[in-house]
Each structure stands twice: as structure tokens, then as C-alpha cells.
């Protein structure tokens, strides 16, 4: 299992591995927002938590189509399915590797991008906390979407259509935490909901992902 994680991390950092792609996308989207809505700092600070959450979500989506498709194309997925590792742990490790190479950098970059959008000072802590709790769910849900569409030509587009609705609860409660936090209000309720959604997806979805992967490999 560790070997698979290390291999996936190594592949992500090597040439063409796609590390930094999501991060660059996140940066560009955030930089473009003031151009489109105007530079009034009061407006920007109102919408900053929502924009940062949406940007992180879309950046997460960007690298999902490579998550299992590359392993499927070169035959590794067939070989992993016949290896002693259960497919459930294969998809969990894949999701973890995706989070480490995409989700975690987004969490770490978010406060710096918050400066660009004039995010209110109390918001930084809650933005990082909400993204830290929310992005693992996005990787796990995304892995499920990738397992559903593996083997399809141009499956990336279908993947986005399938996964985006599933991201809605995470987005609602995650952005709510960041928004309430930025205005200095109580964040406990949405934070608990967000944590609950993440815990449930991590606990349940790997089984669903492994099941659809088995069917798709036939």
C-alpha cells in the first residue's frame, strides 16, 4: 500500500505528472475574479470565501480524469486488480495521493489568494480549516467518479458532470463555514456538517468505487 502511494506521488512530481496544475488553475481563477466583478474591496471581501471555495473545488476537479484513466490505459489497473491488494485499498490510496498532490496544496495556497480578494482577517483561519476538512471529501468523491468513467473515451467531461452535483453538500457547508467565519459569526453547525460529510464519504465511498471499478474492468 505504501508502495502504491509512493509510486503515485512520484508519478505526480515527475514530468507530465500534473502536479501544480490544479494549483495554477486556482491561482488564475482567483486573479481573474477582481477583473470580472470590479476592484471594490468591500464587494470582494464579501464574495471572497465563496470564490475561494468554488475555485478550490474546480481546481480539484481538473486533475480527476487522470486519477484512474492513466492506470487503465497502460494496463496497471488490471494488474493491480489481480495483485494481493484489495481494490478498496487501491482506490483509497489513489484518493489519498490525489489529496496530497492536489487538495493539500490548495489548502496551503488559499490564505495567500485570500489576500488578493481582500478576505477579512478572521476569515483566514476558517477558510483553511474548512478547506482542510472539505478537500479530502472532494478527492474521495472524485475517485468514485473516476472509477465510474474509467475506460470511457473522453470520460473526463462525463466525470465532471457526474461529480459536480455530488460536490454540492461539501461546497454548501464548506463555503458556509468560511463565510460565517469571515464575518465573525458562530461556525459550529456547518463545520460539524462538513466534517460529517467528509467522514461519511471516506468511510463508505471506497467500497462503492471498488465495486464499480470491478464492473468496469470486466
Amino acid at each position: 500500500m505504501i508502495a502504491l502511494l509512493l509510486r503515485d506521488l512520484k508519478l505526480a512530481f515527475r514530468a507530465g505528472g500534473g502536479f501544480g496544475l490544479g494549483l495554477a488553475f486556482f491561482l488564475i481563477v482567483t486573479v481573474l475574479v477582481p477583473f470580472s466583478v470590479g476592484p471594490q474591496s468591500s464587494l470582494l471581501s464579501t464574495i471572497a470565501p465563496g470564490i475561494l471555495w468554488l475555485g478550490a473545488l474546480l481546481a480539484c476537479l481538473l486533475s480527476l480524469d487522470r486519477l484512474l484513466a492513466l492506470d487503465w490505459e497502460d494496463g496497471s489497473l488490471d494488474l493491480l486488480a489481480t495483485a494481493p491488494l484489495p481494490l478498496e485499498s487501491v482506490v483509497t490510496i489513489k484518493a489519498l495521493a490525489h489529496w496530497l498532490t492536489t487538495g493539500l496544496p490548495l489548502v496551503l495556497a488559499a490564505p495567500f489568494l485570500g489576500v488578493l480578494l481582500n478576505l477579512p482577517v478572521p476569515g483566514y483561519f476558517w477558510l483553511v480549516i474548512s478547506l482542510l476538512i472539505g478537500t479530502p471529501a472532494m478527492s474521495v468523491i472524485g475517485t468514485f467518479g473516476a472509477a465510474l468513467t474509467v475506460g470511457l473515451k473522453r470520460g473526463g467531461l462525463l466525470l465532471s458532470l457526474l461529480v459536480l452535483p455530488l460536490y454540492v453538500p461539501t461546497l454548501i457547508f464548506g463555503a458556509e463555514v468560511a463565510r460565517l467565519g469571515a464575518t465573525g459569526m458562530e461556525t459550529q453547525t456547518p463545520l460539524l456538517m462538513l466534517a460529517g460529510i467528509t467522514a461519511a464519504t471516506i468511510a463508505l465511498l471506497p467500497f462503492a468505487s471498488a465495486a464499480v471499478l470491478r464492473i468496469n474492468l470486466r
Binding site: 508519478l11 493491480l80 495483485a83
Partner: peptide, 27 residues
């Protein structure tokens, strides 16, 4: 069973040794 399909499951950006060592530790 060890299965070898038409495609070899080789990662182009890993070296020969890294490819083999990966499968060795999986098994």
C-alpha cells in the same frame, strides 16, 4: 495467478528499476 496482459502496466516516467521495484513491493 500472475497475469500479463497485452499491455505491460509500465509507467513511462519511472525507470526500469522503479517499475519493477513497485510491482515487487506490491506482491
Amino acid at each position: 495467478i500472475a497475469y500479463a496482459s497485452h499491455s505491460d502496466g509500465i509507467k513511462p516516467t519511472l525507470t526500469v528499476v522503479e517499475n519493477l521495484a513497485f510491482w515487487s513491493s506490491v506482491f
